[in-house]
Amino acid sequence: MKFNSAWAGFIAVLIAGLVVLFAVPQIVSLFGIVQMTVFVAMAMYALSQGFLWGFGGIMCFGQASFLGLGAYAYAITAINLGDTSWGMLAGVAVPAIFALLLGYFMFYGRISDAYIGVITLTVSVILFQLINSTSGAQYHIGQAELGGFNGIPSVPTLNMPGDVSNVLSPTGIWYVSMALLIIVYALLRLALASRFGRVVVAIRENETRAMLLGYDARLYKLLSFTISAAIAGLAGCIYDNWGGFISPTIFGLAMSAEVIIFVLVGGLGTLIGPILGGVGLQYVMNLAGTQHKVDPNLGLGVVLVAFVLLVPQGVVPVIRDKAMQLFIRRGAKAARIQETSP
């Protein structure tokens, strides 16, 4: 019963995603489509954090490291090789390999949860400082000048794989980005329903018990961490395609903090929650950015405090529980009617 309703929810989300995928280019202006692409990038980014934190139980305070590594790896590879397909590949692989190495030392070194937060935060600060100090023509990787604080301008946007002259329109980029979001969401859902996913969640619940049942918690945490970094890297690639520009602020503390808020507001322990949290809050922040009275980050802080105090579970779990209650009450009522009727 619960199993079926869970899968029904999954199918419903997929259908909703497909509707959005095809409806947006029909009803939204070109400017709107470009805006929607950054929402997708933020949704993908929030999904990476939501999976790691909500299901793996690992609190990464420097998720921007992987977003930024993905964005820079995409830009540098695309500039050097021309074909952006290699950029996408590098944008996923570089953060994943980086996370694999970092995670190996953290998880196999049995670093406690609090220090994982500290280490990941520190790594993001180091990466920011490192990239920030690369101004000058001497700092380049192949033909790509890193540009220090100014970043890399005119990052190539997606082309058809193998055909560099055929560059995708903003609408084409929208289709690719949104389709990737749907695919990643579906893959995560399937992974969580598999025996791998069950063990990941079990380790979140009780690492000692998982170990005593024969599961190597270190390995599972390392894999979750790496998967999460790969998804964040993919978000970085989409981010590049939105702006065609990348700068070290992507490694900034604000980016790491934002994604935590996206997940908290959307709903920790769900996949759709972070997606909606990422889209919704990015939208609010964009709106706030158009007025010049209040700093958007201040607004985001207020939203965070309000949610932690009033809706600590996040939006999606609250709606889900309310719907479930309604469903159960109706079911009970129907059962009563059936009992009393002759």
């Binding site: 079990a202 009780n206 000692t208 018990r209 005593l212």
Partner: peptide, 30 residues
């Protein structure tokens, strides 16, 4: 512990070590 568990040792600890957020069915399934 995970290596020893795979050699065929199971333990019920003094303070119950269970997966509190999962159902009884899911606990046993893991």
């Amino acid at each position: 512990p995970n290596q020893i568990a795979r050699l065929g040792v199971g333990i019920k600890t003094q303070i119950p070590n269970v997966f509190n957020g999962l159902t009884a069915y899911e606990n046993v399934l893991v």
